[in-house]
Every structure is written in C-alpha cells, then in structure tokens.
Amino acid sequence: MTTHYLVLSALLFTIGGIGVLVRRNAIVVFMSVELMLNSCNLAFVAFSRMHGNLDGQLMAFFVMVVAAAEVVVGLAIIVTIFRTRRSASVDDANLLKY
C-alpha cells in the first residue's frame, strides 16, 4: 500500500529533477522544483500513515511553509530579472561567474 505512494513520489521527484536540469524557462524550472518538494511531501505523508504517527505530516507542513516563502522570493526575483532583461531563460542570467 505504502509502496505505491513511494513509487509515485519517486516518479514525481524524478520528473521534477529532470525538469530542473533540462528546461530553460525559469518559471518551468521553478514549477519543477515545486514538484520535487511536493513529491517529498507525498513520501512524508505516506510514511506518517505507515508508522501511525504525525511526525511525517508535521514535516510536510514545514516543507509547505518553506515552499510558500520560496515561491514569494523566487517569483519576485524572476519577475525583476524579466523586467530588466526581457527574458525568463535561466541560461541568460549568467553574469555572476568567475
């Protein structure tokens, strides 16, 4: 029973990870990151159910809070970059380097 949830979670995490690595659009990359976070949440909740305690659910709430805060900051940065450079590609924002 739990195994199905964990397999789903792993699938979602992999999809998210591949999305982060291969997509150029910052919004899509961002959504992929959210997908990875929520796949973790799914795993936490599944483990919580399996062990019969609330530790996993508690951790899922923490992840949600952090993800919400991250969305606010991240979207703000993406919008600002888009305004100045007319581009949402992560490859174009490469000024901070050696």
């Binding site: 990870g17 690595l21 291969v22 990359v29 992560v90 490859d91 490469n94 380097k97 050696y98």
Partner: peptide, 17 residues
C-alpha cells in the same frame, strides 16, 4: 578551479544532483 563557476544555473544544479 574558479573556471567551474560558469554562471549557468543548470550546470550548478547538475553538480548538486
């Protein structure tokens, strides 16, 4: 060594993975 800092966010993500 600093040549590794290419400025491409996706390559950093690759290193993390």
């Amino acid at each position: 060594l600093r040549r590794v800092q290419t400025g491409f966010a996706r390559s950093y993500a690759m290193f993390v993975f």
